[in-house]
């Protein structure tokens, strides 16, 4: 290949481009098919954006049309000012960021020791974690409120963060556990030879290695916290100024009617950060650990 390329560069380059195109062809076909599927996939999302710029009669007379006749920006004004979405968005961001950090760190730590160490009580912890994994929990809010009140956690964002990070997915711990268990033992040994202690090994070597898991865990916790409803509701009964976006969404529904355009606008506002985060985090799924191991 190289010698030919040196002697007859033009024809070879053409040939290789053609063959590369040929090799890539199945991928482009797949891409085309996916593109079609994706339109169907994101349709309800597009509809939401469209609806946020329509009037109420337009939403229901147009059925599935996405494009508004003339954009009604007032809907956003209503969501932002009347429904206090600006304020709520700030609260939601604070709560979500804090919760995500706590949950990710605590899950990684627990997953690390459960995955790497054998110790007395490990099995008990594991059994409890797995046993509670599949219990329906929607109705356990009453004891949660009960204990939050006894610990004086109500009516503060701090309390909300603590409760939310306590109720987060146990599965994340298991995810980290599975990941750390599969990291070659030599890595630990070499770290120990370098004189790294327990904490250094974890924070400097292991946690960076687990970047793809951390990315997933961040996203999942982000989603759950962002959309959490009952806990933020309870924690802000006496402090409406601390409400989060998902609680604020209630302002759009009345006894017999719902302000659909306002709700769509609210939904669009609250969706934006989620989508941005996803777009950013994607990089970590792509880069993966290959680079991290080398460093």
């Amino acid at each position: 290949m190289t010698s030919i390329a040196r002697t007859a560069p033009d024809s070879a380059r053409q040939r290789s481009r053609a063959s590369r195109l040929l090799r890539r062809l199945p991928w482009w076909i797949a891409a085309l098919l996916l593109a079609g599927g994706c339109f169907l996939w994101i349709y309800p999302f597009l509809w939401t954006i469209g609806a946020s710029l329509k009037t109420a009669p337009e939403i229901f007379s147009d059925g599935l049309d996405v494009i508004p006749k003339s954009p009604v920006w007032v809907n956003y004004g209503r969501a932002w000012n009347d429904a206090h979405f600006g304020e709520y968005l700030r609260n939601t961001v604070i709560v979500t960021v804090a919760t995500v950090i706590i949950v990710v760190v605590r899950s990684a730590m627990a997953g690390y020791v459960l995955g790497r160490y054998r110790f007395r009580g490990r099995r008990v912890v594991l059994v409890v974690l797995v046993a509670t994994l599949l219990v329906p929990t929607g109705y356990t809010i009453i004891p949660v409120v009960d204990i939050a009140q006894r610990l004086h956690l109500l009516n503060s964002l701090t309390g909300m963060v603590i409760a939310l990070s306590g109720g987060a997915h146990v599965a994340l711990t298991l995810l980290y556990m599975g990941y750390f268990r599969r990291i070659p033992t030599e890595l630990f040994e070499s770290a120990q030879l370098d004189g790294a202690g327990f904490l250094t090994t974890f924070f400097r070597i292991m946690l960076p290695l687990a970047t793809p898991v951390t990315a997933s865990a961040t996203l999942l916790t982000f989603l759950n916290t962002w959309n959490a409803f009952f806990l933020p509701l309870v924690f802000t009964f006496s402090r409406p100024d601390l409400r989060t976006v998902s609680v604020g969404m209630l302002a759009f529904s009345g006894e017999y009617s719902t302000d659909w355009p306002g709700m769509a606008a609210g939904a669009a506002i609250s969706l934006a950060p989620v989508i941005i985060l996803f777009f950013v985090l994607q990089r970590y799924f792509v880069e993966g650990i290959a680079g991290a191991v080398k460093n």
Binding site: L151, L154, S156, T158, F237
Partner: peptide, 14 residues
């Protein structure tokens, strides 16, 4: 636990 309680207590008013 004590830490949790203390943290929460700062914001409590109702």
């Amino acid at each position: 636990l004590a830490g949790l309680a203390a943290l929460g207590a700062c914001g409590s008013s109702g």
